[in-house]
Design a protein around this nucleic acid. Structure first.
Length: 476
DNA sequence: ATGGATGATTCAGG
DNA sequence: CCTGAATCATCCAT
């Protein structure tokens, strides 16, 4: 992508073209000399200010002119300018010019260059499109972030991998900058070179026949040459972007374990919503915020967790116990806090904000206790005999051969409720929830191994989200 | 070095 | 579009 290469290539090509012309000129000169002037067979237009009687002088004149033309490039600029001026003013100049015109017409040189109008290069178009799509070419602002956003969407999440993102963006911007500076340089060089060549040709058109069309053709040649170099630039830019992209995507795949705290928060939510571990979008966002991860990472986590939990419930039992206990404790704390809160508040003016959350909280706390106790009892010898509640019946019905502990959970629930009732019995408003709540089903796992009520995301924010922010107080 | 844990990705189904 | 399931790729304790 070097500018010098570009110029060198262009110059080479142009030099080659010029050489061609020079050779043609030379041969024309030769023909001219051999066929006409020197042999004296062809009448020349009358040179001005000369009667043309002196044949030797004329020969000398032509030889002199040709010699000057041939050696003009070997001279210094000033010398050349002077000679050029001299040549232009030479009395034989119009004669030579007309001869050149004639010969040119005869040899059909002027017709050359009819094959213009090259169709747009498909590869160039591809590169252009790609650069546009990657945000390297095109409008200044939106492009780069668009590509980054696309990549972000692939990995999911808005503030996703912000470090890697900014890194990616920075590198892309860098590529973009280099690309644009180089492009500008090329364009500038192209224009300069074109102007230069055009001036040169216009100048030369005084001494030899050059039609505007030929100048145009030359400009076309230059532009094609430059655009082929531009294509190289675009190609290598594309490559750079692709490499960056692939690196970025690779980096995306790199796995970093979540922090312990994040895992705890997620687990708490999972086990406290075991009957329907499908956090709503809001809950996901909340969790994401708390865990300093993205929403899609939360989704991933829950997706993996559900699968893995379901695959091997036994393995997760201990974990479930742990988190359920935690949740229950938190719930109890929350209840105590609620009691205090409600006592503090005037009975006639209850805390409306808290009341709003009341039902949700009831569900959650009930569920927490459910989980806690079920886990406690399922882990034990099973000596805990229970009344055959409706839940029990339900859960037995829904069980398949995979023996889901939820059965025991269901069986235990009613007694759990009784056992735990005293824990929060002082809490006004919660008795009804515990006594009458029909949510004490075995965690919603149905016969198909799916969670009942799956696909109907629980809009319940975990107790953690409650007004007292219970979990955040105790999770450490 | 190895195997289990875990986060991410892919793909098919609803 | 969301989910479950399978799978990949990496981490991490041993």
């Amino acid at each position: 992508m070097s500018f010098s290469i570009c110029v060198a290539q262009c110059t080479d090509s142009l030099a080659a073209t010029m050489d061609d012309q020079a050779r043609i000129m030379q041969s024309i000169g030769g023909v001219s000399l051999a066929g006409h002037s020197v042999q004296g067979g062809m009448p020349l237009p009358p040179p001005h200010g000369h009667d043309g009687t002196d044949g030797d002088g004329r020969k000398q004149d032509i030889g002199d002119i040709l010699h000057q033309i041939m050696t003009i490039t070997d001279q210094s600029l000033d010398e050349a300018q002077a000679k050029k001026h001299g040549l232009n003013c030479h009395r034989m100049k119009p004669a030579l010019f007309s001869v050149l015109c004639e010969i040119k017409e005869k040899t059909g040189l002027s017709i050359r260059g009819a094959q213009e109008e090259d169709p747009p290069d498909p590869q160039l178009m591809r590169l252009d499109n790609m650069l546009l799509a990657e945000g390297v070419a095109g409008p200044e602002k939106g492009g780069g972030s668009a590509a980054a956003a696309a990549a972000a969407a692939a990995s999911g999440g808005a503030a996703d991998n912000s470090i890697e993102h900014s890194d990616y963006r920075a590198k892309l911007t860098q590529i973009r900058q280099i690309y644009h500076t180089e492009l500008e340089k090329y364009e500038q060089a192209c224009n300069e070179f074109t102007t230069h060549v055009m001036n040169l040709l216009r100048e030369q058109s005084r001494t030899r026949p050059i039609s505007p069309k030929e100048i145009e053709r030359m400009v076309g040649i230059i532009h094609r040459k430059f655009s082929s170099i531009q294509m190289q630039l675009k190609q290598s830019t594309c490559e750079a972007v692709m490499i960056l992209r692939s690196r970025f995507l690779d980096a995306r795949r790199k796995r970093r374990n979540f922090s312990k705290q994040a895992t705890e928060i997620l687990n708490e939510y999972f086990y406290s919503h075991l009957s329907n571990p499908y956090p709503s979008e809001e809950a996901k966002e909340e969790l994401a915020k708390k865990c300093s991860i993205t929403v899609s990472q939360v989704s991933n986590w829950f997706g993996n967790k559900r699968i893995r939990y379901k695959k091997n419930i036994g393995k997760f039992q201990e974990e479930a116990n742990l988190y359920a206990a935690k949740t229950a404790v938190n719930a109890a704390h929350a209840a105590a806090a609620a009691v205090q809160n409600s006592q503090a508040n005037s009975p006639t003016t209850p805390n409306s904000g808290f009341q709003m959350k009341d039902e949700e909280f009831q569900l959650d706390s009930a569920e927490s206790k459910n989980t806690l106790l079920s886990n406690m009892f399922t882990g034990s010898s099973g000596s805990f005999s229970l009344p055959n509640t409706g839940d029990m019946f339900l859960s037995m019905q829904s069980l398949n051969g995979e023996s889901y502990q939820g059965a025991q959970v269901g069986a235990n629930v009613q007694s759990q409720v009784d056992t735990l009732r005293h824990v929060i019995s002082q809490t006004a408003g919660y008795n009804d929830a515990l006594a009458g709540n029909t949510m004490y089903s075995p965690h919603g796992l149905n016969a198909n191994g799916g969670w009942q009520g799956a696909r109907t995301p629980c809009s319940v924010i975990s107790p953690t989200e409650g007004p007292g922010s219970v979990h955040s107080d105790t999770s450490n």
